[in-house]
Nucleic acid binder design. Structure first.
Lengths: 137, 137
DNA sequence: TTCTCTGCAAACGCTTTGCACGGAT
DNA sequence: ATCCGTGCAAAGCGTTTGCAGAGAA
């Protein structure tokens, strides 16, 4: 069975080829792509793909709660599928984003100081191990 | 003595009127303004102020580590002075950003999975107590 | 037919850049 | 004379919107 297709049907979204491919791309990926990353990767397989469709699809997915949008520092918006409660680390030097395995106490679905929490993001910024190594040299 | 002026001199920044006013504005404020918020507030007192100067100044302050830039969801960049380790809560409905007093274990200056951490942001998203009240009615 | 997915092109909004003026040293 | 803070105007860039064509039901 096709889990991606089921997921979209469950949420009342027509499982078009474009939507399925964008969802699968996000689900398989360990990184956290920008809309442009997604477009650049998929346009190789679907030459007629447009950025508008990528934006439309991402917006639909976010609205339906299938994926989450987040951003760390500056303004680049990134997307991820099925976020388990983990932290993100962004390197100031190479701009890569790493997942941090150290578990984070999730506050999702809790009431904090009267506010109802739906999402919980822990973002770390600094210099990653790869870039630290390069500096030592 | 003028603490803002001292701070700028310590960091090797010429304490011009514009820079001092922007720094004081940030230091006194409990909220987390966007560049435009700062501009709109200060242009009333300094009619000749330009947005370019606000952006230039904020960039200088961020580069020198005097203030921090952060963003929660979407792409609006916000600034804050002297961030103690606290969390931010953003309401999906009214878009306000609240400081969360609940202390957060700061990972700043720690090495996490090999990465050197310089900043640590905890961002919560959901519906704030004010908007929850309105819904009950 | 009707609905909606798709995609081109234009618009939009925030931020950055180029460049020139002007004040301070 | 030089340095640099300032600010106008334009460019840049990611994202959204308007609208029309295509394809499915």
């Amino acid at each position: 069975m096709d889990r991606a297709k089921e997921l979209l049907l469950d949420k009342g979204i027509t499982p078009s080829i474009h939507r399925l491919m964008i969802l699968k791309y996000l689900a398989d990926l360990k990184e956290h792509p920008t809309a442009d990353n997604i477009y650049q990767s998929l346009v190789k397989k679907i030459p007629t793909l447009s950025k508008t469709t990528v934006y439309n699809t991402l917006k639909t997915f976010v609205d339906k709660g299938i994926i989450e949008a987040f951003s760390i520092a500056n303004s680049e918006v990134r997307y991820e599928f099925n976020p388990s409660p983990h932290a993100h680390f962004k390197c100031k030097v190479c701009h890569r984003i790493y997942d941090i395995e150290k578990p984070v106490e999730s506050l999702v679905n809790r009431i904090i100081e009267g506010h109802e929490v739906h999402e919980h993001h822990t973002n770390l910024i600094g210099i990653c191990r790869e870039c630290l190594k390069k500096r030592e040299k």
